[in-house]
Design a protein around this nucleic acid. Structure first.
Length: 848
RNA sequence: GCCGAGGUGGCGGAAUGGCAGACGCGGCCGACUUAAAAUCGGCUGCCCGCAAGGGCAUCAGGGUUCGAAUCCCUGCCUCGGCACCA
C-alpha cells in the first residue's frame, strides 16, 4: 500500500458531526454552569447585551457573541470563575405588531421565537450559563420591575406629571432619545412625532446628572463617554431676573427669569425672547398684537408636523408689544416670542445678545433689532461686527458695559452676577440638556405600572404583596390610538388599597428599557421569588467586569443602566454605583450592499446556512478574523474558505503528522541548513513566541491578529510535517500549545482533537476547556540570531544577521564593512550611526 | 453646523516613531490526477530593467525628526452621533 492511499484513510474534518456532539456533551457535563458560590478563584462577570427575540439570529448576533465567548473561555483557562449568562429582552412592540398582523398572542409569538433562538444560540457552541436565563416578559421578572418602580416612587425618583411630550401616532409616547433626526421621527416605525400635553410617568434621571458625568471609576470607550457627556449637556452660567415694564395694557413687575452662560454680555441684551409656550405670553401680549401672537403660538404647536428642513432655516417670531427691563442698566428692551427658544430648557426664556450669539444675531438681522457689541478681543474694540462674535480669546475685554467697561470678560461677567445677586436679581446656575426619562407607554406588551387611581385618594401604589400586577392574557390589543389595557374592564376595575373604594388601574405599561436597566443583577438569582436581587451575590459578583454590545445604546440603555444602578444603590439594594466596569463596543456588520442588514432589504446573512456548510468554528473564526472587532464592516463571505482551510490544516497536522502529501516537493525534507536539533529549536521557539503574542491579543480583544499568529505557527509546522521532527517532543509541545491557544476561539475542533490525542496517549479524557492556559518558556521563545536592517539616510540598503547578544559596537563594525553599505556611502564619512529600538535597526546618517 | 471615528495593494486588513503591505481572499505558475475538484508548493504593491539592481508608493499638500502610515498644521472624502439646549 502506498502512502497516498494510506492518507485517504484519515478521517475528514466534519464539523457537522463533531459540533452537535460536543455541544450535547458539554451540556450533559454542566461545563458551563457557574458555581456562584465558588470563592476559590477570582470571579469574572462577562456580560453581552441580551437580545430582543425577533425570531431569527443573524450574523450580527454571532459577531457580538462568539468573540465574547472566546473572551470568557480565555479567562476561564486563566483560572477565573467566569459567569456568562444570557436572556431575552422579551417585551416590546414587534411582538404586539406581529400579534396584530398574524393574530397570535404576543406571549405565544415571543416564546416561540425564544425557543428558536435558544436553538440557534446553542449552535454557536458558546459557554452560556443557561441556568441563569431571564425572560423579561415573564411575571417572575416583571414583578420586580414593579417592585423597583414602587421603591423609586417612594424615593421621589418616579413621578407623574403633565408636560409636552413626544407622541408617535403608532407607538404613543416616546422618550426623548427615542425620537430621531432633524425631522423628529419615531425610532421604531419612522413616523413623524408630535408634541402633546399629557400626564405621564417620569423617572428623575436628572437627579443624577452630575454623577452621570463622572466616569472616573469605569473604563469605557472615549466615544461613548463623550456621547453621554454631550447628551447630559452640562452648562454653567447664571439665572438672571428681568422684570416686565409697565405699559397701557398691563402693570408690569412680573419676573422674567432667563438662563445664560454669558452673563458678561448682559449689557448687549437688546431684546428678550420667550418660547411660544411660555406662561407669561398671554398676559404680556398687547391687544394690537394679540391675533398675530395667537396665530404664531398655534403654528408653533403644530411645528413638528410642519416640514422642518434644517436647523438653519430662517428665524421666525413675533413681538408681544411689551418690554422688559434690563436689571443691569434699567434699559427697556422689547419682548418677542420665537420657536428657536425651547420651552423645555432652562427657563424657556432668553435674553438675546445678538452681537455674541449666532442665533440671536440671525434673529436680530431678520427683524432689524439692535446689535450691540459688548465683548472684544484685544485690539478689536472699535472693529465693526460682521456676525456674532462668540469665540473665547484670551484677553477679551468688555466694551459698552457701563462701569464694567474695560474689565476682562470672565471677571466682568462674575462681577455682574455678584452685583445683581446682592439684590436677588441673579444667581450662579448649572443647567443640563438631559431631561427626565418619560417611561410610560400606551401599549399592551410591557410591564403594567402598579398604581391605581382612586376617586378619593388619587394615585395609590399597589402594595408589594399584591405584585405582580399581571398583564391580562386576553385583551383587545388590536387597533391603534388608545391604550389596549384601558379596553379591558376586568383589568381596569379594582379597589383602592387604601380606602377599599372603587378605583381604576393604571393602563400604561413601562418602556422596555426599564427591563434592561437592571437585568444583569437578576441573572445572579433569576428564580428568587422574595426579592429582586440577592444582596450577597450582587456584592460579590457586580459590577460586571466586562460588557460587550453595540454603540447604538450610548444614550439609552447604557445611560439608563447607570441611572438605575445609582438609584438602586441609594435604595440600599446594591453597594456600588456603576453597573459595568469595562465596556467594549464591537462594530456593526453591514449587508453586502453596505447597508444595515434588514429583512426588507433582503441583505441578511443567515448564520445557519454558513454553519451547515462550514461549521460553527469556521464561522466564529471568520468573524473574528475579518478585521478589528470594534470596526465591523460589510459582509463578504469570500474569505471564509481560507479560515476553513486553516482548521483543515490543523486537523491534518494533529491527526497525520507523518503524512506526506502527494505532490509536495519538500515533504519529508528539513529546511536547508537545519539538522534535527535546530529544527526542534525553531519549532519550540516559534510556538512560545506565538504564545506571547496570542496571550496579549486575547487580552486586548485583537482576535484578527491572534488568528493570524496561529496561522503562521500552523504554516510553520506544516513545513515540518512528514519530516523526522514531526512527532518529536518539540513538535508535540507545539501542537499542544496550538490547540490550547485556539480553544477559546474554536471550541469544538480543539476539543475533538484534544480528546483524540489523549485517547492515543492512553491518558484519561478531560476537556480542553478545563485546561489551564499554558506558561511561556521565555528561554525557548528567545532567538539565537536577529536580522538587522541597515539604513543609509533612512533608506534600507542591506540586512545583516547578527547574534542576538551582539553589541552595538560589534554590529556597527560589521555593518560598515558590508559591500552594499560601502557602495551606498559612496566615500562619504558617516556622520552619525543610530542604533534604534534596542538593536532592531541601524541607520547611518551621511551628509551629501 | 457641532462632536467623534476613520482613509494603507484588486479586496478584508497588519504595522501607532524604526524593514510598509503580516495573515487571509482573489490571481498566476507548478506538483498530484486520465481529468476535474480537493490538497500541497512557489510567485503576486506600482514603474523601469534580460538580470543584478534602481525608482516610486500609506487621501492631498506642508511641517517636525537621523528616520513618519504613525506626531503637528491645512484641506478633501467616508462613516457614526447630535439637531437652534441660550
Amino acid at each position: 500500500m502506498t502512502e497516498t492511499t494510506e492518507r485517504t484513510r484519515i478521517e475528514r474534518y466534519d464539523p457537522t458531526e463533531i459540533e452537535p456532539r460536543w455541544q450535547a456533551r458539554w451540556e450533559e457535563l454542566g461545563l458551563h454552569r457557574t458555581d456562584l458560590g465558588d470563592e476559590s478563584r477570582p470571579r469574572y462577570y462577562l456580560l453581552t447585551m441580551y437580545d430582543y427575540p425577533s425570531g431569527d439570529l443573524h450574523i450580527g448576533h454571532w459577531y457580538v457573541k462568539t468573540p465574547t465567548d472566546a473572551i470568557g473561555r480565555f479567562h476561564r483557562m486563566r483560572g477565573e470563575n467566569v459567569f456568562m449568562p444570557i436572556g431575552f429582552d422579551a417585551f416590546g412592540l414587534p411582538a404586539e405588531n406581529a400579534a396584530i398582523k398574524n393574530k397570535v398572542h404576543p406571549f405565544a409569538w415571543t416564546m416561540k421565537n425564544i425557543e428558536n433562538m435558544r436553538r440557534q444560540l446553542r449552535t454557536m457552541g458558546a459557554a452560556f450559563d443557561w441556568d441563569a436565563e431571564v425572560v423579561t416578559a415573564d411575571p417572575s421578572y416583571y414583578r420586580w420591575n414593579q417592585w423597583l418602580f414602587l421603591r423609586l416612587l417612594e424615593m421621589g425618583l418616579a413621578y407623574r406629571a403633565k408636560a409636552p411630550v413626544d407622541w408617535c401616532p403608532n407607538d404613543g409616547t416616546l422618550a426623548r432619545e427615542q425620537v430621531e433626526g432633524t425631522d423628529r421621527r419615531c425610532w421604531r416605525c419612522g413616523e413623524r412625532v408630535e408634541k402633546r400635553d399629557l400626564d405621564q410617568w417620569w423617572l428623575r434621571t436628572t437627579a443624577y446628572a452630575d454623577e452621570l458625568l463622572d466616569f472616573s471609576s469605569i473604563e469605557w470607550p472615549e466615544p461613548i463617554r463623550l456621547m453621554q457627556t454631550n447628551w447630559i449637556g452640562r452648562s454653567e452660567g447664571a439665572e438672571i431676573v428681568f422684570e416686565t415694564a409697565p405699559d397701557d395694557h398691563q402693570p408690569g413687575g412680573d419676573e422674567l427669569r432667563v438662563f445664560t452662560t454669558r452673563p458678561d454680555t448682559l449689557f448687549g441684551a437688546t431684546f428678550m425672547v420667550l418660547a411660544p409656550e411660555h406662561e407669561l405670553v398671554a398676559k404680556l401680549t398687547a391687544p394690537e398684537h394679540r391675533s398675530e401672537v395667537e396665530a404664531y403660538v398655534a403654528a408653533a404647536r403644530r411645528e413638528t408636523e410642519i416640514e422642518r428642513l434644517s436647523t438653519d432655516r430662517e428665524k421666525t417670531g413675533v413681538a408681544l408689544g411689551a418690554d422688559a427691563i434690563n436689571p443691569v442698566n434699567g434699559e427697556r428692551i422689547p419682548i418677542w416670542i420665537a420657536d428657536y427658544v425651547l420651552a423645555g430648557y432652562g427657563t424657556g426664556a432668553i435674553m438675546a445678545v445678538p452681537a455674541h450669539d449666532e442665533r440671536d444675531y440671525a434673529f436680530a438681522e431678520q427683524f432689524g433689532l439692535e446689535i450691540r457689541k459688548v465683548v472684544a478681543a484685544p485690539g478689536t474694540e472699535d472693529v465693526l461686527l460682521h456676525g456674532a462674535y462668540v469665540a473665547h480669546a484670551t484677553g477679551e475685554v468688555l466694551v459698552n458695559s457701563g462701569a464694567y467697561t474695560g474689565q476682562g470678560a470672565d471677571e466682568g461677567g462674575r462681577a455682574i452676577v455678584a452685583k445683581l445677586a446682592d439684590s436677588g436679581k441673579a444667581e450662579p446656575k448649572v443647567t443640563y440638556r438631559l431631561r427626565d426619562w418619560l417611561f410610560s407607554r400606551q401599549r399592551y406588551w410591557g410591564t403594567p405600572i402598579p398604581v391605581v387611581y382612586c376617586e378619593r385618594d388619587g394615585i395609590v401604589p399597589v402594595p408589594e404583596d399584591q405584585l405582580p400586577v399581571r398583564l391580562p392574557e386576553t385583551v383587545d390589543y388590536r387597533g391603534s390610538g388608545d391604550n389596549p389595557l384601558s379596553r379591558d374592564e376586568a383589568f381596569l376595575a379594582t379597589t383602592c388599597p387604601r380606602c377599599d373604594g372603587p378605583a381604576r388601574r393604571e393602563t400604561d405599561t413601562m418602556d422596555t428599557f426599564i427591563d434592561s436597566s437592571w437585568y444583569w443583577f437578576r441573572y445572579l438569582s433569576p428564580n428568587a421569588d422574595d426579592r429582586p436581587v440577592d444582596g450577597p451575590l450582587v456584592d460579590r459578583w457586580t459590577p460586571v467586569q466586562q460588557y460587550t454590545g453595540g454603540a447604538e445604546h450610548a444614550v439609552m440603555h447604557l445611560l439608563y443602566s447607570r441611572f438605575f444602578t445609582k438609584a438602586m444603590a441609594d435604595a440600599g439594594l446594591v453597594s456600588h454605583r456603576e453597573p459595568f466596569l469595562r465596556l467594549f463596543n464591537q462594530g456593526q456588520i453591514l449587508g453586502a450592499d453596505g447597508e444595515r442588514m434588514s429583512k426588507s432589504r433582503g441583505n441578511v446573512q443567515d448564520p445557519d446556512e454558513l454553519v451547515a456548510h462550514y461549521g460553527a468554528d469556521t464561522v466564529r473564526l471568520f468573524l473574528m478574523f475579518m478585521g478589528p472587532w470594534d470596526q465591523g464592516g460589510q459582509w463578504n463571505s469570500s474569505g471564509i474558505g481560507g479560515v476553513h482551510r486553516f482548521l483543515n490544516r490543523i486537523w491534518t497536522l494533529v491527526l497525520d503528522p507523518a503524512g506526506k502529501e502527494p505532490g509536495d516537493p519538500d515533504s519529508g525534507e528539513l529546511p536547508e541548513g537545519e539538522d534535527d536539533a535546530a529544527a526542534e529549536a525553531t519549532i519550540r521557539s516559534a510556538a512560545h513566541r506565538t504564545l506571547v503574542t496570542v496571550t496579549r491579543d486575547y487580552d486586548a480583544f485583537h482576535f484578527n491578529t491572534m488568528i493570524a499568529r496561529l496561522m503562521e505557527l500552523t504554516n510553520l509546522l506544516m513545513r515540518y510535517r512528514g519530516s523526522v521532527v514531526a512527532g518529536s517532543a518539540a513538535w508535540e509541545e507545539a501542537i499542544r500549545l496550538l490547540l490550547l491557544m485556539l480553544a477559546p476561539a474554536a471550541p469544538h475542533i480543539t476539543e475533538e482533537l484534544w480528546s483524540r490525542r489523549l485517547a492515543l496517549a492512553g491518558t484519561p479524557r478531560s476537556s480542553i476547556h478545563a485546561e489551564r492556559w499554558p506558561e511561556v518558556d521565555t528561554a525557548a521563545a528567545a532567538e539565537a540570531t536577529r536580522e538587522v536592517p541597515v539604513q543609509v539616510n533612512g533608506k534600507v540598503r542591506d540586512r545583516v544577521e547578527v547574534a542576538a547578544s551582539a553589541s552595538e559596537a560589534e554590529v556597527e563594525a560589521l555593518v560598515l564593512g558590508r559591500d552594499k553599505i560601502v557602495a551606498a556611502l559612496a566615500g562619504r564619512a558617516p556622520q552619525r550611526v543610530i542604533h534604534a529600538g534596542g538593536g532592531r535597526l541601524v541607520n547611518i546618517v551621511v551628509r551629501d
